[in-house]
Write a protein that binds this DNA or RNA. Structure first.
Lengths: 334, 334
DNA sequence: GAGGGATTCTTGATCGTTTGAAAAGGGAAT
DNA sequence: ATTCCCTTTTCAAACGATCAAGAATCCCTC
């Protein structure tokens, strides 16, 4: 039933050396006579040897594995970060293993426990909402990095963009194009990113001397469906608006559909701005103006940073910026 | 530097029993006095014990881990399958670890090697294009399942939908709505799914007595960009068409944009059908008519099937069907 | 040819579990 | 008191690698 692999012992016998010599060749740390090394390598190839990661991990205490906990497989934003992480680790001796937190703190905790049992050497958390004490405890246990969450006390070990600033710029873009009645569809309540993006929106309006109208702010949950509902309730309230800023692209897609349903043209009647710049956004009709988050770059930077940390060096993550991608859903208001 | 976890030994001492008793409690296989069990469990909780997966794996020969190789993180279709797989494993004692094949056979092989080194107990391959001999060799080594690939010799161990049939139905839908000049944008050349979907398209046309016009068939690569280019070159060729069938939704999104750019309305001037039913498709303007693949269900079924296989039972995967989701991009041709 | 270094290899303990076999404890039957 | 049989627990040997510490070999010099 169970496949019995070749072991280090087998190689040793086959090459007429001791186990430790084989081990030395394997890890090419210490010196081994080049002749011996050749023999050993040959034996390995011949027998199709693949070292047993468990035995290695057990003996060395290091697994050459890092855990990556995402919020949700299938979320365009997190998937993009994931790709960056993978890219950052390919070609190195570390390999990432992934767990899905399903937007649920309990699932995340559980996933981390499992990962710890798997003796990961480091941990990357994506946009995690765990409470700070838990995080600090974790940080004491192993090298760890957080992407997409701002933790005041953790300077340099979390990688995030300035959501307030980015939302400010997006809103300001609309203001510069002559819009004064700008609606916003927010993300999940209490979610850090939602709060910050909303704050940026408010600040931009205030700086332009426009009062924030609570009737123009609608809660959503980052899903396309909530974008549809958001626009409908906005419209139902009767407070007029000429532009909508959505806290992510999915909601912008939904919003765009709802506007269409209500006979409003984008951008002729209503301008629209999203957030994230997910893959499809550039191909919507019309292509969506949105805030681009450098998700891949963030993932790659996290991978590099974590490797430094695991090698005992300090790491200071770069400060990446979100940039506004101006496409075709914003039009100057006459 | 390195965190020293609580070990089974510690628990044993703390609860005044031997290591093996603790182990027995842990695996609750054999009988343990309920009183003793309680004591042990308490000690575990008290010391925050987390079993070392390496030691376990080494001793038992089983890792309680299954490898899942996807083609590309971020692909809506594969991500959906992944979610199904996760769902299928949550609550069980197995946990999946993921690797990204990046659409590259070599990367896939490498990923499988790494996974094998990690002593996975089973393997799920998503839409993999490895050559059959390699697959057969793998199959000899460990329980394994393939999702999204049809292998003649592997009845019951690969899970796929009938792409020919699905494409046939999609095309036929257009024919029933009065379309005769139906263009198609294909996926990556030589890719199994592309070939089958193209075949379904051809058969439907033939069965309706319509000759397949090579000028109406355009190659793509499953990306939105290739949908844009596809429509443009179709148009440039001057062969008129009233409908376009795309081998996936991303290309349909691109196609829809390109049609818009050329002043063609969907569905008034040109009807459009996609394939996959990815998340956004229902929210496009107008919502996309497309073939829905039961991706989540496929993932979940694969997880269940693999567990059966790993327990030594046989497994016969269900035959899932793709279904046409009629939305608003197809209009009757006068 | 003895002594001293380098270099290279081997021995054997160790990592934290699992697991089959042996042992201990406690009745009940003989 | 002895035997037998449960149930429950312990012993100790794996599992397959790593890694000090020590042993062997070789080369060179005096």
């Amino acid at each position: 039933m169970h496949f019995k692999g070749t072991t280090l012992q087998d190689i040793a016998e086959n090459a007429n050396v001791s186990k430790s010599t084989v081990s030395r060749v394997l890890n090419n740390k210490s010196v081994v006579n080049s002749e011996t090394r050749r023999t050993v390598l040959e034996a390995m190839k011949r027998l199709g040897y693949e070292p047993n990661a468990f035995a290695r991990g057990l003996a060395s205490g290091r697994s050459m594995t890092v855990g990556v906990v995402t919020q949700k497989f299938g979320s365009p934003y997190f998937d993009a970060i994931l790709q960056g992480v993978i890219q950052g680790f390919t070609g190195t001796e570390y390999s990432p293993i992934f767990a899905d937190g399903q937007w649920d703190q309990r699932v995340v905790s559980e996933a981390i426990r499992t990962l710890l049992g798997r003796q990961i050497d480091g941990l990357i958390l994506l946009g995690c909402e765990l409470d700070e004490s838990h995080m600090i405890e974790l940080q004491g246990r192993l090298p760890m990095l957080v992407v997409g969450r701002e933790l005041a006390s953790w300077d340099g070990q979390c990688l995030f963009i300035d959501n307030v600033m980015a939302a400010y710029e997006a809103t300001n873009h609309l203001i510069e194009y002559g819009h004064r009645k700008i609606a916003m569809i927010r993300g999940i309540e209490h979610h850090q990113d939602s709060i910050r993006r909303h704050e940026g929106y408010c600040r931009a309006l205030e700086d332009a001397g426009i009062a924030v109208d609570p009737k123009l702010v609608q809660d959503g949950d980052f899903s396309a469906q909530s974008g549809v509902i958001g626009v409908s309730s906005l419209l139902a309230r009767g407070a007029p608006f000429t532009a909508v800023f959505c806290a992510n692209d999915m909601m912008a897609i939904g919003a765009r559909l709802a506007l269409h349903r209500h006979g409003l043209r984008v951008p002729d009647d209503v301008s629209l701005v999203g957030f994230d710049d997910q893959g499809e956004s550039a191909f919507l009709t019309p292509p969506l103006t949105t805030v681009r988050q450098p998700a891949r770059e963030m993932g790659a930077a996290a991978a590099e940073g974590l490797m430094k940390l695991m090698q005992g060096e300090t790491c200071r993550l770069p400060k990446l910026r979100a940039t506004l991608q101006c496409r075709e859903t914003v039009r100057r208001r006459q």
